[in-house]
Design a protein around this nucleic acid. Structure first.
Lengths: 220, 220
DNA sequence: AAAGCAAGACTTGTCTGACATGTTCCGTGA
DNA sequence: TCACGGAACATGTCAGACAAGTCTTGCTTT
């Protein structure tokens, strides 16, 4: 497998480029196709290459799900806790929201505002609210113009999808839930206003509330 | 592969526990051993399980190298830049150093100080200095008592090993290099003194210097 | 009786050959 | 020139086989 990675390095290493076929590589390295297949499967699991159907494997773009699955596994095996994830999320997103306020394009600001508005509009459908919420944080991360921030933030989604409902249900009434939505709208407005200070303060409030209600539900 | 993960979930899901053998799973799911092998290989690539030799596969502990390899690939395919990684590193490590100052045990503080001292002691051997440097940041991340921070910081090592020498060589003289080492000792002292403010300020200086000399060498 | 050792059962790693399914590409015909 | 069809190619899956390593078990020795 190391040999194949080195080959990707020395060859051309551009995402989207095709790799040689399994048979060709098996012949080149003097091993059976099974060995090449396992190496391909390893690289595909890391989303370093994209294999499928009857077409050749291609160099792939980075994918948040890799880290997402690792986090999911770590949580389910009790190696890390939800609260620990939230500490990292807070650290990262306090930065992405400031960067987004400074760097966002106009259409990015518009879509962030629209997602916050959509959370209020679909208030009665928690599943839709969650989807908008996740997309909201992802859009902010993208607006930070640093794909690595987007990767990390995106990796939290798998775990978030499993705990979001707990936090939502843990709020004692709709007023508290609406306050959470209002918090998102404050963040969106601050980003649209290019105000990193206010955006950061609103994001801090958002995380304080989320952690508070998660703790109230007994989620460690 | 999804089925196997679900089986890990429902079964017992503790790290270190053994999984059924390939033949047993092949029989259970009614597929050939090759399919099970590929699923195992995928999970092993993500370090979710540990397979090897003639022994049964076991549930595995989280490993920073997974994210490390992804970052390495992303850098080599020009999907993210070194500077973007440094922004994330700075964001994360500004937090780990503060947490370490608050939470470190005595032996952790001692080993962090020792690593900074070792950087000065081995000053004439850049390779050793780099090793101590990497271990230094990793020790701080562990002292934060949040394994997810340790995971993320650890994932940067693979890329750091490829660029560290550039930053070191980019410093115009040994005085500048010694200043970098002194910066690490300041951080270590602040952690030993349980002073998160000073530790954070020293870490900020450290990253400002590192980014400055990397930029001077033309590393984007 | 306890400890050490050796044989056997079990598991993974690799190989070979084969066939089904799906994609890509090119030449042919409208 | 465009659309269609087929050949070549690629991956997905299967079956059977053997080598190499690990673990268990039962026996021998002390």
């Amino acid at each position: 497998m190391t040999s194949i990675k080195e080959r990707m390095r020395s060859e051309k290493l551009a995402p989207g480029d095709p790799l040689p076929s399994e048979n060709a590589l098996a012949l080149e390295f003097g091993v059976s196709r099974a060995v090449i297949r396992e190496a391909f499967r390893s690289l595909a699991a890391l989303k370093l290459i994209d294999v499928g159907g009857g077409r050749r494997a291609r160099v792939s773009a980075i994918d948040p799900d890799v880290l997402g699955l690792v986090l999911d596994h770590a949580v389910h095996t009790k190696q890390i806790t939800i609260q620990q994830i939230y500490d990292v999320r807070r650290t990262i997103e306090m930065r992405t929201v400031a960067l987004a306020a400074l760097r966002r394009a106009d259409d990015e600001a518009a879509s962030i505002v629209e997602l916050a508005d959509a959370m209020a509009r679909d208030f009665d459908n928690p599943d839709h609210v969650m989807r908008h919420d996740i997309a909201f944080h992802e859009a902010i991360a993208r607006a930070s113009r640093n794909p690595l921030f987007a990767l990390v933030v995106g990796s939290f989604h798998i775990v978030t999808r499993q705990t979001w409902g707990i936090g939502w249900a843990s709020r004692p009434n709709d007023a508290e839930r609406m306050a959470s939505v209002a918090c998102h709208r404050s963040i969106a407005r601050a980003i649209a206003d290019r105000d990193p200070r206010v955006a950061g303060a609103a994001m801090a409030d958002h995380f304080d509330l989320s952690v508070k209600w998660l703790l109230a539900a007994g989620v460690n």
